[in-house]
C-alpha cells in the first residue's frame, strides 16, 4: 500500500483528512464539545443573576471591558457555530443522498428503553430549533439596541438599562420567555446525544469509561436544560 503524502501549502494533508465523512464528523465533534464548554461558561456567568444584581452587572462590565480579547473570543465562537452548523447541513444532505429511494417500511432493531439514545435523526431538527433560538438570543442581547431601535421588540426595556435590568426586562417579554424556556430544553436534548456522540466520533470509547461518558452526557444535558430554562421561569415568577 502506498500512502498519499505531501501537498501544496503544508496543511493539505489536514484539509484532505478533515474533508472525509469521518473528518467532517471529527470537526463537528470538536466544535460541538467546544460549544458545550462555552455553554458551561455562559451558564456559569448567567447564574450570577441569582447571586445579585450588582455581581451580575460587575461581571457583564468586566466581560465587555476585555475589548480586543472579547472580539477575538467572539470571532472564535462565531467560527465554531458556523463550522458546526455548516457541517451539520452539509453532512445531512450528503447522508440523505446516500439513500435516494426510501424504504416503504422501517423499524428499529435496537432495544427501546427509557435511557435509549435519542435517535440521531432528530439532531438536525433540534439543531435548527437551537439555531433559531440562538438568533433570537443574539437579537435580544448582542444586538439589543438594534432590535429595540428598529421597533421590533423590547420597547418596554429602557435603552440604557444596566445588564441585569436588561436581562430581566428581555426575559419578561412573553415571546422571549417562551423561546428561552423551550429553546433551553431542546438544546438539552441536542447535547444529550451530541456530547456522548462526540466521544464516539473522536474514538474515545472504552468499556471502562464509556458508561461514565454516557452518565456525564445525561448530567450535562440536565444541567444545561434546567440551568438555562430556569432563567425565564425565574424572571416571570420572582421578579
Amino acid at each position: 500500500m502506498k500512502r498519499q503524502t505531501g501537498g501544496c501549502c503544508g496543511l493539505c494533508w489536514l484539509w484532505s483528512s478533515l474533508s472525509s465523512t469521518i473528518g467532517q464528523k471529527i470537526v463537528m465533534a470538536l466544535t460541538g464539545l467546544a460549544l458545550c464548554g462555552f455553554l458551561l461558561v455562559h451558564l456559569g456567568g448567567n447564574l450570577l443573576l441569582y447571586v445579585g444584581e450588582q455581581k451580575y452587572n460587575d461581571y457583564a462590565h468586566a466581560l465587555h471591558a476585555q475589548g480586543a480579547l472579547l472580539l477575538v473570543a467572539e470571532i472564535g465562537l462565531f467560527a465554531m457555530f458556523v463550522i458546526h452548523i455548516g457541517l451539520a447541513f452539509r453532512t445531512s444532505f450528503a447522508n440523505a443522498a446516500a439513500r435516494p429511494i426510501a424504504y416503504a417500511m422501517r423499524q428499529s432493531k435496537q432495544d427501546p428503553g427509557p435511557l435509549a439514545q435519542p435517535p440521531s435523526g432528530v439532531m438536525l431538527a433540534t439543531g435548527i430549533v437551537v439555531l433559531v433560538f440562538l438568533l433570537v438570543h443574539l437579537s435580544d442581547f448582542k444586538f439589543f439596541s438594534v432590535t429595540r431601535a428598529t421597533g421590533l421588540r423590547h420597547q418596554s426595556v429602557p435603552a440604557d438599562a444596566a445588564p441585569f435590568a436588561r436581562a430581566v426586562g428581555v426575559l419578561q417579554d412573553p415571546i422571549s420567555a417562551l423561546v428561552y424556556f423551550a429553546g433551553s430544553l431542546v438544546l438539552a436534548y441536542h447535547v444529550l446525544h451530541g456530547f456522548a456522540s462526540a466521544f464516539q466520533t473522536l474514538g474515545l470509547r472504552h468499556p471502562k469509561y464509556t458508561p461514565l461518558v454516557k452518565t456525564l452526557s445525561l448530567v450535562f444535558a440536565i444541567v444545561v436544560g434546567v440551568g438555562f430554562a430556569s432563567f425565564p421561569f425565574w424572571a416571570w415568577t420572582f421578579r
Binding site: 472525509s20 465523512t21 469521518i22 467532517q24 464528523k25 453532512t91 450528503a94 447522508n95 440523505a96 443522498a97 446516500a98 439513500r99 428499529s108 432493531k109 435496537q110 432495544d111 439514545q117 435517535p119 440521531s120 435523526g121 439532531m123 446525544h193 456522548a196 456522540s197 464516539q200 466520533t201
Partner: peptide
C-alpha cells in the same frame, strides 16, 4: 468508502443492532 457514495456515521447504532 466515501468515493463509493456511502453516507457518514451519526452514531445511531442501528448498524450494530442489525
Amino acid at each position: 468508502m466515501d468515493e463509493e457514495g456511502f453516507g457518514g456515521c451519526t452514531n445511531t447504532n442501528e448498524c450494530e443492532a442489525a
